[in-house]
Each structure stands twice: as C-alpha cells, then as structure tokens.
C-alpha cells in the first residue's frame, strides 16, 4: 500500500487567508515568503535603482516617475473617498509655487521650504476646496479641473510670482542623491501608509463616504469634516511632489499648473487599477518611462502613447495590479492527502 500516496492541488493562499483580507495564519517560512515577496521585492528594487542608473538621463526619468507616482497616489486617495479629482495639478502647482516663492523672495533653505510648502500648501488647497465639498460626482471634478487653470491665468495676467517667466535660479538639492531618495522614500511611505490607513477605522469611514454618504451621516459622522481631512492628506502629498520638482529644476513657472500633472497621474492610476495605491504606483512607473522611450518617435509619440493606453484599458479594465494580484493568489501547490 506504500504506492498509495496521492496529491491534491491547492491554492497557496487558501491556508494563509482566514475569512478576511486582514487576518492571516502563518505557519511556515514559505508562507511568510509568499506574502512578503511581492511587498519587499519592488521596494528593494526601487531603493537600488539610483545605484544601478548612476545619474544621467534615466535617473531623471526615475525621479520624474516618483513625482508622478506621488500625484497618482494622491489622486487614488481622494478617489477612495469618492472625490474624483481632475486637478492634481492644483496641488502640484501650489506646492511648487510656495516652495519656489519662499526660496526666491525670502531666501529660505530647503529644510524650511519643503515642509512649509507641504503643510501650508495642503492647508491652502483644503480651504479652496472646502466650499465645494457639498458638490458630488462630476460637479466636484469640474471645479478641480478649473482651479489650476485659474491660478495659471492669474499668475500670467497679474504678472505676479515671476509672471510668464517664472522664478529662476532657485536653490538646488545638495546632491541629486538627496532629491532622488527623498522622492523614493516619499513614494514608499505614502504607498504603504495609505494602504494601512484605508483599512484602519478612519479609512473605513472614508470608504463608507464613497459607497454611500447618507448612511455615514445616519451613523452620526460629519462627512464634510472627513472629506476635508482626506483632501488635506492628498493635498500634502501633491504639494510635496510640486516642491520637490521645483528645487530639482531650480525653476518654477506656470507649467506647474499644466494639465500634464492632472492627466498623467490619472492615467497611471487607471492603468494600474484604482483603489489599491499599488496600482497607481505601478501604472505611473510604466507610463512615465514609456513616454520617455517614445520620445524618439517625435510627433507620433502622443498618438502611439494614446493607442497603448487605450489598448491597456480595453484589455484590462480592472487595472494591472488587480490582475496581477488575482493571478498571484491563484498559484497552486501540491498537497499530500
């Protein structure tokens, strides 16, 4: 009867996951590895990349990707409260101009401009959007779309903050290492921080507002206060990205309010799969380098870029990240019966 050893195929995560997404049973090292690998590996790679690239053009692209990833994370955070923003450029521009302005007019060092731009910018953006928090759906989106355009025109027509020329020769980072690692750490911090926060009780309230804000109100919770807090958090991330970019380029101009800073993060989040934060990060880390590669094609670049985006959205409407997660959870192993 010794021949009678039989095996059954079993999904790896079946033994690990118990009931919910947040409770795990870990019994051995392989299970731990199965859970840890997809989290640790990308982070380790991201931290190593600046060493591998050793400066130059592609390091700039990496920095760029981080900036857009921050904006995508900020977009995704607002979307998880049901606030669909079409104006990440507002956060980006406000952060960029505050840090640029403080440095240009008051000669403040980076150690001051970055935090002031992040917190002060977030505060300013929250104040600007608080008045329209009662708007829902597309009406809120439209206001967010208009605000950055409004700022760009104000700066141009009133000729304030450098007008059309912008503010030049701002203080750079001590070295490009500082800039790139600041950006990378910010991305990792926001990614894991947001993923944690959204599953905390605070995050559950935010997701509740997205699903049905009337039920949240019936639960005795002031939804406007929570929406304002969400905008402050998302705004801080976006403003920080803007401030980083300003000092990296040593320049800030009206282009900080350009539509690019709205559309690209949004496209990245949608490509990667909204609602998971990891999706938004992956999406931008694909789209930004891709658009750089396509630069060689000249005029055809935007056309091809658009085609790739449409093809990705049609074939993977759920987003890359959700697809990858699903496949990863379907890995099987042989279990002896």
């Amino acid at each position: 009867m010794g021949e009678d050893i039989r095996y059954r195929r079993e999904r790896i995560d079946r033994g690990i996951k118990a009931r919910t997404d947040t409770i795990y049973f870990l019994s051995n090292f392989r299970d731990i590895l199965y859970l840890l690998l997809p989290r640790v590996l990308p982070v380790a790679l991201l931290l190593l990349l600046p060493f591998l690239l050793k400066g130059g053009y592609w390091e700039k692209v990496l920095f760029y990707s981080c900036i857009f990833a921050l904006l995508a994370l900020s977009w995704d955070f607002m979307a998880s409260v049901g606030l669909v923003s079409l104006g990440q450029a507002l956060f980006f521009g406000v952060g960029a101009y505050i840090s640029g302005g403080l440095n240009h007019y008051f000669k403040m060092p980076l150690s001051l401009t970055l935090p002031i731009a992040t917190l002060g910018g977030a505060f300013l953006c929250t104040i600007l959007l608080v008045s329209v928090l009662r708007l829902r759906g597309v009406y809120f989106s439209m206001v967010t779309l208009i605000l950055p355009l409004l700022f760009a025109h104000l700066i141009e027509t009133l000729n304030i903050l450098g007008g059309t020329h912008g503010l030049l020769s701002l203080r750079p980072f001590p070295s490009s290492w500082v800039a790139i690692y600041l950006a990378i750490f910010a991305v990792v911090f926001c990614l894991f921080g947001f993923r944690k926060l959204i599953n905390e009780d605070f995050g559950l309230v935010l997701r509740g507002i997205r699903d049905d804000d009337r039920v949240v109100m019936a639960g005795g919770i002031n939804i406007y206060w929570y929406k304002a807090q969400a905008i402050f958090i998302a705004g801080a991330v976006g403003c920080f990205a803007g401030a980083l970019m300003t000092h990296y380029y040593q320049f800030v101009g009206r282009s900080a309010f350009a539509l690019d800073y709205t559309i690209l993060p949004l496209a990245g989040a949608v490509l990667g799969g909204p609602g998971s934060f990891a999706g938004a990060t992956i999406g931008t880390f694909i789209l930004v380098p891709l658009s750089e590669v396509l630069r060689a094609l000249g005029g055809l670049r935007m056309a091809l870029y658009g085609i790739i985006l449409i093809a990705a959205l049609v074939s993977l409407p759920e987003g890359l990240f959700h697809y990858i997660t699903r496949k990863y959870h379907q890995f099987e192993r042989d279990v002896r019966i």
């Binding site: 009780d201 509740g208 699903d211 009337r214 019936a218 639960g219 919770i221």
Partner: peptide
C-alpha cells in the same frame, strides 16, 4: 433606510465601524 443602503464593498461587520467610530 427603506431602500437597502450599505457599504457594499466592505465586509458586513466593517459596515458597523462607521457608527462605532462616531463622536
């Protein structure tokens, strides 16, 4: 609510966290 209203994407018991988190 007369019409069924719930946080459809959250687990059932997490639906109650919202009122439990209220002031």
């Amino acid at each position: 609510f007369q019409m069924v209203r719930a946080f459809h994407k959250l687990p059932a018991f997490k639906n109650l966290i919202v009122p439990l988190y209220s002031p």
